[in-house]
Simulated assay, not measured.
Amino acid sequence: MRIFKTHVLLRLINSYIVDSPQPANISYLWNFGSLLGTCLVLQILTGIFLAMHYQPHVDFAFNSVEHIMRDVNSGWAVRYTHANVASFFFIFVYLHIARGLYYGSYKSPRILVWTIGVIIFILMIGTAFLGYVLPYGQMSLWGATVITNLLSAVPVFGPDLVELIWGGFSVSNATLNRFFSLHYLLPFLLAALAIGHLLALHTHGSNNPNGVGSNSDRYAMHPYFTFKDLVTLFFFFLVLSIIVFYYPNLLGHSDNYIPANPMQTPASIVPEWYLLPFYAILRSIPNKLLGVIAMFGSLLILLILPYVDLSRIRGNQFRPAMKLFFWFFVVNFVVLMWIGSQHPNSPYVEIGQVATTFYFVWFLLIVPILGLSENSLMDIATK
């Protein structure tokens, strides 16, 4: 339609969704971006409806969630959708990052796209943690207490910083109010960053499985790739529907159905499953301050990847050694997730320490050394 190319706003939509040229050989692994956008929209919409009935007060928070579940028309569906889409959000973002790592999507000229993506990921983790506290069950209260207490490890200002966040001397009404306000506002910041992510991606276009420029072999976004996106979107809705209607608590923690009790500590305090790898890294280091630094470092280290990957080849498609170490990294990440769910006893502590060491070694030593080795071998082969 001509109006899509002439109207000042529709022309922008047309350039992103209709006529945007995409590499012909991108696979279904490139569909996670549209799935993540769908998850963000679902979370914002369901969150707005939940906020209409939720009360951020230590005496009423748990009961207000039960009120949503039992008394509000279809409130149970909205609440379960919100809780389960949060899990799918992280499943998709981990797969999205893994695809980026495997195919070298972080390398120039897409460094800005990668950087904004990492910032989105870190903000997602913060938003998810704040949301986990709001139902104010046992795991909410004690998870908030443990995680916010980590800031007390900061020299000099630590204890004051914790009190500032709590709004008192323990997790209390002020804490719940602050967490609710931030949890409501941060998704809109996430949406703004997601738009920035798309703008940066639009500048140079998507990477492709071969890792080479493919300007001569591109198709329009619509209808070729929009319909490809719809395949995974419908499959996602199918799986989400099955979980929401039949297994709504599959990905949650049963302790959060117990009202928060500051006088009774749960047997095991663990965050949601998608934060377990970073929790395992935190617990693997005996020193509290170093553990906190390692936990935040495990997220921020993603930002250095474009600078430590020195290989001339983009992606692991044609790099057998790096392909092997990539899968070692994936297995190591799953091991960290498992360790994070276990009690901090032997041998789990020792396994966690080995897995944590490998996590950082992969970024700081394996990636640059393999890149330099491959470059040297290529130089020898061409002589």
Rank of each mutant, 00 (worst) to 15 (best):
Ala144Tyr: 04
Ala83Ser: 14
Tyr136Cys: 08
Asn215Met: 08
Ile369Phe: 15
Leu290Ala: 15
Leu282Gln: 11
Asn287Trp: 01
Arg314Pro: 06
Pro320Tyr: 11
Thr226Glu: 09
Gly167Trp: 06
Ala86Gln: 10
Phe90Ser: 01
Asn63Ile: 08
Leu10Gly: 01
Ser170Phe: 07
Gly252Leu: 14
Leu141Lys: 06
Val154Glu: 09
Gln264Thr: 13
Phe329Ser: 15
Thr127Val: 10
Ile242Gln: 07
Pro56Thr: 01
Met337Cys: 00
Trp114Met: 03
Ser140Pro: 02
Ala267Trp: 00
Val65Ile: 13
Leu42Phe: 11
Leu300Gln: 11
Asn208Ala: 03
Ile285Ala: 00
Ser268Gln: 07
Leu199Ala: 09
Gln43Ser: 14
Gln138Gly: 08
Val335Trp: 13
Val78Phe: 12
Val156Gly: 01
Leu176Gly: 04
Tyr94Arg: 02
Ile339Trp: 02
Ser64Phe: 02
Val78Asn: 07
Phe363Gly: 04
Leu190Arg: 09
Ser87Phe: 13
Gly196Glu: 03
Phe363Asp: 05
Leu123Gln: 15
Val118Cys: 10
Leu189Thr: 10
Thr356Val: 04
Phe60Leu: 12
Ala83Pro: 05
Leu9Glu: 08
Phe278Ile: 13
Met124Trp: 13
Met322Trp: 13
Leu290Gly: 05
Ala200Asn: 00
Gly167Asp: 05
Ser284Ala: 15
Arg312Tyr: 12
Asn210Phe: 11
Ser105Met: 06
Thr127His: 13
Leu201His: 02
Val171Ile: 14
Phe90His: 01
Ile119His: 06
His82Pro: 05
Leu275Val: 14
Trp30Glu: 09
Asp379Ala: 14
Ile97Val: 15
Val58Arg: 01
Val308Asn: 02
Trp273Ser: 00
Thr81Ile: 15
Val162Thr: 11
Asn287Pro: 06
Leu9Phe: 14
Ser20Lys: 12
Val212Lys: 10
Gly315Phe: 03
Leu324Ile: 15
Met1Arg: 08
Trp338Leu: 15
Ser172Gln: 08
Met139Ile: 12
Ala321Glu: 14
Ser373Glu: 12
Phe88Asp: 11
Phe32Met: 13
Leu377Thr: 11
Val41Asp: 03
Ser181Thr: 15
Glu66Lys: 07
Asn210Leu: 10
Pro306Thr: 00
Ala267Tyr: 04
Gln317Ala: 14
Val41Lys: 01
Gly167Lys: 02
Gly100Trp: 05
Val93Gln: 06
Gln342Val: 02
Trp30Gly: 08
Leu233Asp: 09
Tyr219Lys: 12
Asp71Trp: 08
Tyr102Ser: 03
Leu50Pro: 07
Thr6Val: 09
